[in-house]
């Protein structure tokens, strides 16, 4: 991940600050930075969202396509993730530099959203064994300022909420062949239930305490971080240790507890905001990329 160089004295300052629950920008250990979320930014997609957290900028676009379902689960659709770290984010991502990070992020997303209980994949099935909806989730990192996983998961949840899949009907003709008919009305579409989709909380261990939503400087002081994916009901779907250091088992339990608490509290304001966004409809002020 893009990193900054900091001196030993700055590290000591940051660690002492975290110990006293006063970080460099005045936040507490469990506070997030100011976030701005906007949905429906790209008109060519079936669903899109843009999240800005501090200077981290993430854009998610979702497109739905009809394909054959996977052979071992014939009555479910599925999701495919792809994360692109462009050189726009930082010069380190130029050429193939960002590819490794992109693959790591995509793989983690597969693990997090793999659970059948988070998204009802059966609703994506059109004709068991033959046709199903595949959602291609493409994530673009526009700017990188730490805490990529959290911003990505919030953006994906908002984009899935915004996704409108056109309703199709399967018609059988005389020879038994199946034909797919798209409904004529552009507003007749299928919406996904995003109630149980998890959000990722990354906790970085700095000194003896851990912080949520770490900036790049705080990340440079921490040896190890824990990634926890939490659903609105407080259940944990994925836990991963990141970084080159080791963790005490007690720290892991503590950090998982904090992650659960913080993650659970993240969902309610997000859903509220998304509902408000939707209800504004045409009156919503479209900001797009100009702010």
């Amino acid at each position: 991940m893009a990193s900054v160089q900091i001196s030993e004295a700055e590290k000591v300052y940051i660690m002492h600050g975290v110990r006293d629950d006063l970080r460099v920008d005045g936040r507490g250990c469990e506070d997030y930075r100011h976030m701005e979320i906007e949905t429906d930014v790209v008109s060519n997609t079936d669903g899109s969202a843009k999240v800005r957290m501090g200077h981290t900028d993430v854009l998610v676009g979702i497109k739905a396509e009809l394909r054959r379902p996977r052979p071992n689960v014939p009555d479910e659709g599925y999701l495919e993730f792809f994360v692109d770290c462009s050189a726009n984010a930082t010069p380190e991502f130029e050429g193939r530099g960002g590819e490794e990070l992109g693959v790591e992020l995509s793989n983690t997303l597969y693990k997090v959203f793999n659970s059948h209980r988070s998204l009802d994949l059966r609703s994506l099935c059109v004709c068991p064994g033959e046709h199903c909806w595949v959602l291609y989730v493409d994530v673009l990192l526009l700017q990188c300022d730490g805490n990529l996983f959290d911003a990505m998961s919030i953006a994906i949840k908002a984009a899935l909420f915004n996704t409108r899949i056109p309703k199709v009907r399967v018609l059988e003709d005389e020879e038994g062949g199946k034909e797919i008919e798209l409904s004529d009305d552009p507003y007749d579409c299928l919406r996904l239930r995003v109630d149980n989709i998890p959000c990722i909380v990354t906790l970085c261990k700095v000194g003896h305490r851990h912080v949520v939503d770490a900036t790049l400087q705080e990340k440079a002081c921490s040896a190890a971080s824990l990634l926890v994916a939490v659903t609105p009901r407080g259940a944990v779907t994925c836990v991963r240790k990141l970084g080159a250091g080791s963790l005490d088992p007690d720290s892991i339990f503590e950090m998982t507890e904090t992650g659960k608490r913080v993650g659970k509290a993240l969902h309610a304001p997000l859903m509220e905001l998304l509902q408000k966004d939707e209800s504004l409809g045409k009156k919503r002020q479209k900001v797009g990329f100009l702010a």
């Binding site: 944990v236 836990v239 991963r240 240790k241 963790l247 005490d248």
Partner: peptide, 17 residues
């Protein structure tokens, strides 16, 4: 007594993890 790698997938109960 240090954990150097941890990967947990799937929705488990509270006390199960």
């Amino acid at each position: 007594g240090q954990v150097s790698g941890l990967q947990a997938d799937g929705e488990m109960r509270e006390d199960a993890l």
